[in-house]
Simulated scan of single mutants.
Amino acid sequence: MKKFRLQNSGPYLVMAPGMIILLLFSIYPLIFLLKISFQDYSPISAVKPFVGLDNYVHLFQDRSFWNALRITAIFVASTVVLEFAIGLGLAIILNRLTVGQRIYQSILLLPIAMAPTVVGLMFRFMMNDQYGIMNYFMELFGMSRVAWLSNTSLALPALIFTDIWQWTPFMMIILLAGLKGIPDEPYEAANIDGASAWQAFRYVTIPQLSKIIYIALLLRTIDSLRIYDTIYMMTKGGPINVTSTLSWIVYDKGFKFLEFGYGAAICIILLIIVVSLLTFVLKKLDLFEVEDRP
């Protein structure tokens, strides 16, 4: 074993600041979160007794948790699938443009330049049942006003629509970068073989984009799982908890009712879901495989 020498310490010194920041802002909070998930932890109580798995048992018996898990699954599945489909369509159109591509691209990217709180507030005003612009246009076409955010059947679709409006450009720009990286030769070979546009898309474009697609879907799924800002500005989890996601009930239980231990347990379950998704995608990308070296 080689002895540690000062002249060999350069890489460690360069890495040290980043590792210290990672330890302080990622690893320590995670350990603390795991610790309080096994406690009846409240900031207003000096005693924080260890309760073992009681928070987790209570969590799986709590109807609000299962409702939030169901709402989160619907929200994530709807937004990610629609954002991918629309984003891919826009990316293909932009990739084929020869004039004004950068201008259209800049315009389409405007929504992701806005803070989620601003977007939530903007759509809250637009969907207002009294003076919202969406109801104005509905009346203009002879339809009656709709209470978008106070109707239990429409509140979640309204939230999904808002998320799609803001984050579809994110999916679009990732897929557009992938499309620009595909060489022309496979398309030329497909054209010589007499492949139709659909066959070229299915057998050339999609396989070439597969890894980019996995990464884009993973990033949007993780981001959708932690949605909070837009919900706070638009619905605050209502009406009657129809827009109450896992991230929202963490805030609701932890900061409104000061049940920090219970909120931490929900965070751990959410973390397990995210890590499971990450592991699945990394395996699909073959990032866990180590090439054999002679």
Results as ranks from 00 to 15, higher is better:
Trp148Leu: 04
Met138Cys: 05
Leu156Phe: 08
Leu140Val: 11
Leu176His: 00
Met138Asn: 10
Gly178Thr: 06
Glu139Phe: 04
Pro169Gly: 00
Ser150Lys: 10
Ile164Ser: 07
Phe170Met: 07
Leu154Asp: 14
Val146Met: 07
Ile174Leu: 11
Tyr136Asp: 08
Gln166Glu: 13
Tyr136Arg: 09
Leu149His: 03
Leu156Ser: 05
Met172Gln: 05
Met143Asn: 10
Leu140Arg: 14
Leu175Thr: 01
Met171Asn: 01
Thr152Gly: 10
Ala147Trp: 09
Asp163Pro: 04
Gly142Pro: 06
Phe137Ser: 07
Leu156Asp: 09
Glu139Ile: 11
Leu140Glu: 15
Tyr136Gln: 09
Thr168Gln: 05
Ala177Val: 11
Ile160Val: 15
Pro169Thr: 01
Gly142Ile: 14
Glu139Asn: 13
Leu176Phe: 03
Met143Ile: 11
Leu149Ile: 07
Ser153Ile: 12
Phe141Lys: 12
Thr152Ile: 14
Gly178Lys: 02
Ile173Arg: 07
Ser150Tyr: 13
Ala155Tyr: 08
Met171Ile: 09
Pro169Met: 05
Pro169Phe: 01
Met172Phe: 04
Leu179Phe: 06
Glu139Gln: 15
Pro157Leu: 11
Leu175Met: 11
Ile160Ala: 02
Leu140Trp: 12
Leu175Val: 00
Met172Ile: 05
Phe141Pro: 07
Ala158His: 13
Leu156Val: 12
Leu175Ile: 00
Thr152Asn: 10
Phe137Asn: 09
Ala158Glu: 08
Ala177Gln: 07
Trp167Leu: 04
Met143Tyr: 13
Phe137Cys: 04
Tyr136Asn: 08
Gln166Asn: 04
Phe161Thr: 14
Pro157Tyr: 10
Leu149Arg: 02
Ala155Cys: 14
Leu159Pro: 01
Pro169Arg: 02
Thr162Cys: 06
Ile164Leu: 09
Ala177His: 05
Ser153Ala: 15
Trp167His: 08
Met138Ile: 11
Ala155His: 07
Phe137Asp: 08
Met172Ser: 03
Thr152Arg: 15
Thr152Gln: 14
Ala147Lys: 15
Phe170Val: 05
Pro169Tyr: 01
Thr168Pro: 02
Phe161Met: 14
Ala155Ile: 10
Ser150Ala: 15
Leu156Gly: 06
Phe161Ile: 15
Tyr136Leu: 14
Thr162Ile: 04
Asp163Val: 06
Thr162Lys: 02
Ala177Thr: 13
Met171Gly: 05
Thr168Ser: 06
Gly142Ser: 12
Met138Asp: 05
Asn151Glu: 09
Ile164Trp: 09
Asp163Lys: 12
Met171Phe: 06
Met172Asp: 02
Gln166Asp: 03
Pro169Glu: 01
Pro169Leu: 00
Phe141Trp: 12
Leu159Met: 15
Phe161Asn: 11
Leu179Gln: 01
Leu179Met: 03
Leu175Glu: 00
Pro157Ile: 12
Ser144Val: 07
Asn151Ile: 10
Trp167Phe: 13
Phe137His: 07
Glu139Arg: 14
Leu175Gly: 00
Thr168Ile: 03
Met143Trp: 12
